[in-house]
């Protein structure tokens, strides 16, 4: 798998499963349960924090601390599970979250444009699909009816 970021920046985030894995100035991410169990410790760390939320988990848990996350990674259980499209617009447009929103898990290149337009700006994709993703972005419609705040 590889990460492509809309701003072409390099990905530095590493997933951790244990608090002892954290080193200073690291860019780390963790799942929702880990966040719930270690919230107090994590807030104090001098690290860029990211969180990985499964598409079937509610986002209420992270909303109150939204500003501390540098990355929110929505992991699609299935490409048919469209919940993160709403979550992304809610946090971008209603809550004015400005850091990275990543789509990972089971996503299709054909969803690329929809994801971008909802506010996703980082994608974890299969290495052998990179050409398809690039082609889709190049060949596809920049034209659509709706104005979302991430239409550019």
């Amino acid at each position: 798998m590889i990460i492509i970021n809309k701003d072409s920046s390099e990905d530095k985030f590493v997933q951790i499963h244990n608090i002892s894995e954290i080193k200073e100035n690291n860019s780390i991410f963790f799942d929702l349960d880990f966040w719930k169990n270690n919230k107090k410790d994590l807030i104090k760390k001098d690290c860029d924090l990211g969180i990985k939320i499964s598409s079937d988990e509610p986002i209420n848990e992270i909303v109150e601390n939204l500003e501390i996350f540098k990355l929110i990674n929505f992991n699609f259980l299935s490409f048919k599970d469209g919940r993160p499209f709403s979550y992304a617009r809610k946090i971008r447009e209603n809550l004015k979250y400005e850091n990275k929103i990543r789509a990972s898990g089971n996503i299709l290149p054909d969803q690329y444009i929809f994801l971008l337009r909802c506010g996703f700006d980082s994608f974890e994709i299969k290495k052998n699909q990179i050409k398809t993703w690039e082609n889709i972005l190049k060949n596809n419609f920049e034209s659509y009816y709706q104005f979302t705040e991430s239409n550019t």
């Binding site: 490409f79 048919k80 599970d81 469209g82 499209f85 709403s86 617009r89 969803q111 444009i113 929809f114 994801l115 337009r117 909802c118 419609f141 659509y144 009816y145 709706q146 979302t148």
Partner: peptide, 14 residues
């Protein structure tokens, strides 16, 4: 029709 065509958020509904 326009609003709902390729709506970025509502194309993978339940």
């Amino acid at each position: 029709r326009k609003w709902s065509t390729f709506h970025p958020e509502f194309t993978f509904l339940p």
